[in-house]
Amino acid sequence: MAIALILVLIAVGSVLFHVLSPWWWTPIASNWGYIDNTIIITFWITGVVFVAVVLFMAYCLFRFRHQEGRRAAYEPENKRLEWWLTIITGVGVAAMLAPGLFVWKQFVTVPEGASVIEIVGQQWQWSYRLPGKDGRLGTSDIRNVSSDNPLGLNPSDPHGQDDVVVEGGELHLPVGKPVKVLLRSLDVVHDFYVPEFRAKMDMVPGAVTYFWFTPTRTGTFEALCAELCGVGHPQMRGSVVVENESDYQAWLEQQPTFVRSSAGLGPKVESPRLTD
């Protein structure tokens, strides 16, 4: 019975592949361990169902294969069995949905006191904006975008004057602090995706979207674009440096603010004389 045997091999082989193969998610670097846990629950439930159904099929194929004189049973339905299966399936589905919705609630609820930063996508690079001393981002409008004002900040908004604008380059974040990421795009839909953070969200021109997370591990992480955005899509890379508070502050100090860069002044490090 080749087919029965092969189905058994498929069931067993899939499980072995899952357990033994080297391909597994990257070590997590954010608070979204909950997401990983929900995936694990889902793997267990779906894995059990997969193996059970495929093995049952294999058994049927072996046991009820055509042989001389065999006749199938005639049984149009079996209400009891059908209801039981429906109920059990319902329970399994609920066991995945409940934790899923619970974690989704956390995902969409930004904790109070999260710091706010902005990531802006454009073909094909990332830019970042962090609030200055006042802790608030100024307003922006796409119509203000020009070569001096690449992110379209509102020049007359006092909150925006001290905003730190990083074009291309790296985003730095302090470890252990929740951060709400506002997302904007200047041209097409992009998606800021750092596999280690698990969280991601599209950035849509004409709208501001968001997600939040807490970096839990220092290090440099690669950011990719996860929404097709034209031929340069795979080249749209960036990196996020998660560091401790003092390193972060030191880095922030050196970044040009909006007033400075729009006045044509470079970052502080590169032109130390001007800051005197």
């Binding site: 998610w25 909950y34 997401i35 995936i39 889902t42 995945m96 989704w104």
Partner: peptide, 14 residues
């Protein structure tokens, strides 16, 4: 069932 469960979809989408 992974991708339909909003939060699980977040890391896996795209």
């Amino acid at each position: 069932l992974f991708l339909g469960n909003a939060v699980v979809d977040v890391p896996l989408s795209d």
